[in-house]
Write a protein that binds this DNA or RNA. Structure first.
Ligand code: MN
Ligand code: MN
Ligand code: MN
Ligand code: MN
Lengths: 218, 218
DNA sequence: TATATTTGTTAGACATGCCTAACTAAATTA
DNA sequence: TAATTTAGTTAGGCATGTCTAACAAATATA
């Protein structure tokens, strides 16, 4: 049995240790931060997760998921992204509305439900934010992407995903005229703060470095 | 805020005090029984529900829902039955599989989700077990029904709902050749145990009184 | 009506998951 | 390397929701 709280920790650990290939370990504070709990709380849960064999760590050491833990985490992410896709494709939700509800739906336990949902959606490959949906075996079709902040001046690229799933960020992205598959031309960059001038559908905008780092492009 | 546990108590109380028109009050043991908890646990929760203004009862007295409590309960039942319909209609679940998963899905909090789900299902009136689905205002289209046990000998009736939602019962019902809208002819009844001889699609079966009391007909 | 049975309540305990405050170890900086 | 800062841990407490055991009230039965 995996409780909802435990599932949330496993999912957070997966994001902290697998989303960026170079970063394969996490710390207590970082984890606590992502889950909006205190480090004491995270530490306490880590002991339980270790006890259950889902996490490996030693006192004052770095945290990582075991193979078992990773399997569980991927299952939850799979459900999360399938539900987001369902809400977006079938129930008229916008991409800034899906995440919050999927945070609840991802905890529903039923193998058949997930299988049938995937079939009903015709085996989608990416969710409304451009993130890959793991298949039933837990395999993730990894897509090589850069952040917009890494794109050189005068080059044009295509938005394929967003890192930040918060509704405020997504609404701002829409305001910039952007959506998945949008073409973005990098006009220029101010070196002292990393902010960028971009052009989308002939409309120019200035965006901060932080924003550029949350837009994933190819 | 209504917790999942609280929602389950409200729903159980609704079934105990509104499903049968003559029975408008419930007792602690009865409630505990329905929720598979001890009477002590139910008693403890009742105090909290009373405190929140959802339940009215006095020590050693009978329990009933307040108007506020009833509104909450109907919302949960509405969600439960919409999800059951979704699973049945869209995701290839059988009627004996839907209840268990709906027990989880009914607790998802999102007004938009329920509205859109209902629209997606084209405003269904009954769930896979023949039970009416409350509308957004909380109105329930009440259907007058009898149990098969009340039908006289040699009369024919139509199955419109099942009282017991357990998968074992529903599978047995299917084995009898029955489904919603099936025609049932009452051939005879043994007085000493209330068991009945019935005919469905030219197949005769003998069923216990208990079973007959869980089949709702018109 | 006295007794037995059923129904409901209270007290005390426990697991889960969270907190704050105090502390310790590790890493950084002077 | 010593001092400071950051990261991580421990102790103790609390809310929720559950339990068992003991008890009290209400109801049914003799
Ligand atoms: Mn999301
Ligand atoms: Mn997503
Ligand atoms: Mn049901
Ligand atoms: Mn039903």
């Amino acid at each position: 049995m995996v409780s909802q709280a435990e599932e949330n920790y496993l999912k957070a650990l997966f994001h902290l240790t697998s989303d960026i290939p170079e970063k394969t370990e996490a710390g207590t504070n970082e984890l606590a931060d992502m889950l909006d709990v205190t480090p004491a709380t995270a530490n306490n849960m880590l002991k339980k997760l270790k006890e259950k064999g889902w996490v490996s760590y030693e006192k004052y050491g770095k945290i990582s998921l075991t193979d078992k833990g990773r399997v569980l985490a991927v299952e939850i992410i799979r459900k999360h992204r399938l539900w987001e896709t369902f809400l977006y494709e079938k129930l008229n939700f916008t991409w800034d509305e899906v995440h919050e509800v999927a945070e609840q739906l991802e905890h529903i336990q039923s193998v058949k439900l997930v299988q049938q949902l995937e079939k009903f959606l015709d085996f989608p490959e990416i969710d409304p934010h451009g993130d890959p949906i793991p298949n039933e075996k837990g395999e993730i079709r990894f897509i090589k992407r850069k952040t917009l902040a890494e794109i050189e001046e005068s080059k044009t690229c295509k938005l394929v995903a967003v890192k930040d799933n918060s509704s405020s960020f997504l609404q701002y992205v829409v305001k910039l005229g952007l959506g998945l598959s949008s073409k973005i031309k990098v006009l220029g960059r101010r070196e002292f703060d990393g902010s960028m001038e971009i052009e989308v559908n002939k409309v120019r905008s200035s965006i901060s470095k932080k924003v550029a780092q949350n837009l994933l492009v190819v």
